[in-house]
């Protein structure tokens, strides 16, 4: 009798345990499903949409024409990562829509096709500009996001975007943005390889592909508007001075950078603000173009402008942030900001 009672109690205890286990399992499953749905939503849309394919092909062909190279079925299928058969179908569609002409095995854009391509390029570059100026999305994500958004932004929305950004001329890579009427102005610039030793140059354009090179450049503080000095050319390497440091670039990396010659001496022998010791003073030379948008405006409004004397005053408990004295006020900056502000120490 006693044993029976005990075993019943035992079973009910197990049941109780079991029940809560089921509940626990249900929550875990619900959580997992939630995570899966979320990641599906955020996943980059697969490129299978016809509109997207058409627009991407037009962009590719425009790019070929701009570089004076020949576009073929082969290069197009490579750039769209599509099979040859599917690429041929797209080309047929483009011809049918009178967007391109085929001469031999080369493609030429019709004037409608060119307008369409420029419209897509305009939206792409406006988006990149928007992401750079109005959000804190990192530079390695601009291109990817713009690649998606260029296909689902209407012309009216693009015009609004342009107005909001103050009708910009250049995207954050230094590429010109076509205007509403599809007009585009290219600036003649040199690549870094074409510059003589000891010349000081300003970066006008950085090619955003291949991604590895692009990443290396902005990780070393090279943005549009950055000032460099070409120091030496050695064994297929170009040694440059940038932001007070030396950096060596391969020929192909240097080919990705377009520059114009400047003659400002303010950019030589600078050090980052973060390297100032407590109670050391220096004169601000420039703010790197890595500080942009609202962040840049905020710092300028606080009085952190070129030719101002700045003094490091105290460090926080963890050495970050550091408080600097500018024009009689104390302003604390984080290290990732003071790394991008460049100063010159007083020689005296």
């Amino acid at each position: 009798m006693y044993k029976l009672k005990l075993s019943i109690r035992f079973i009910s205890a197990i049941e109780k345990k079991y029940k809560s286990m089921i509940y626990l399992l249900i929550t875990i499953i619900v959580l997992l499903i939630g995570i899966i749905i979320y990641s599906e939503f955020t996943k980059k849309q697969k490129i299978n949409n016809q509109k997207i394919l058409i627009e991407d092909s037009l962009k590719h062909i425009y790019d070929c024409e701009h570089r004076n190279t020949d576009c073929t079925n082969f290069s197009l299928s490579g750039s769209l990562s599509l099979s040859k058969e599917k690429t041929s179908k797209i080309i047929d569609l483009l011809i049918e829509k009178k967007l391109i002409n085929v001469i031999g095995n080369k493609f030429r854009l019709t004037s409608e096709g060119k307008n369409y391509a420029l419209q897509v390029i305009r939206i792409h570059r406006l988006w990149e500009k928007y992401l750079a100026e109005k959000t804190s999305v990192g530079e390695n994500e601009w291109h990817t996001i713009a690649e998606i958004e260029e296909h689902n932004t209407s012309i009216e929305k693009a015009n609004k975007l342009a107005a909001q950004l103050g009708n910009p001329f250049l995207d954050p890579h230094g590429d010109p943005i076509p205007n509403e009427n599809g007009e585009i102005i290219y600036n003649e610039t040199l690549t870094l390889n074409q510059v003589k030793i000891n010349s000081i140059v300003k970066v006008e354009h950085i090619e955003d592909e291949p991604k590895e090179t692009y990443k290396k450049l902005f990780n070393n503080g090279i943005y549009i508007g950055t000032i460099l000095k070409v120091k030496n050319v050695l064994n297929e390497k170009i040694i440059i001075e940038v932001n007070g440091k030396e950096l060596s670039l391969s020929i192909s990396e240097a080919d990705n950078i377009n520059v114009s010659i400047v003659s400002e001496v303010n950019y030589e022998n600078v050090i980052p603000l973060s390297s100032l010791k407590i109670d050391e003073s220096a004169v601000i030379s420039f703010l790197s173009n890595g500080i942009r948008g609202q962040q840049r405006r905020r710092l300028l409004d606080l009085g952190i402008v070129p030719n101002t004397i700045i003094t490091a005053r105290m460090k926080s408990l963890n050495d970050d942030p550091t408080a600097y004295e500018v024009r009689g006020t104390l302003i604390a900056l984080r290290k990732n900001q003071s790394d991008l502000i460049f100063v010159k120490k007083n020689e005296s």
Binding site: T135, V137, G293, Q295, R297, L299, A323, I331, A332, L333
Partner: peptide, 14 residues
């Protein structure tokens, strides 16, 4: 909030 604008600064008034 990944993409929202961020502009850090901290004034330390006298």
């Amino acid at each position: 909030l990944k993409g929202e604008v961020s502009s850090f600064s901290l004034e330390l008034p006298p």
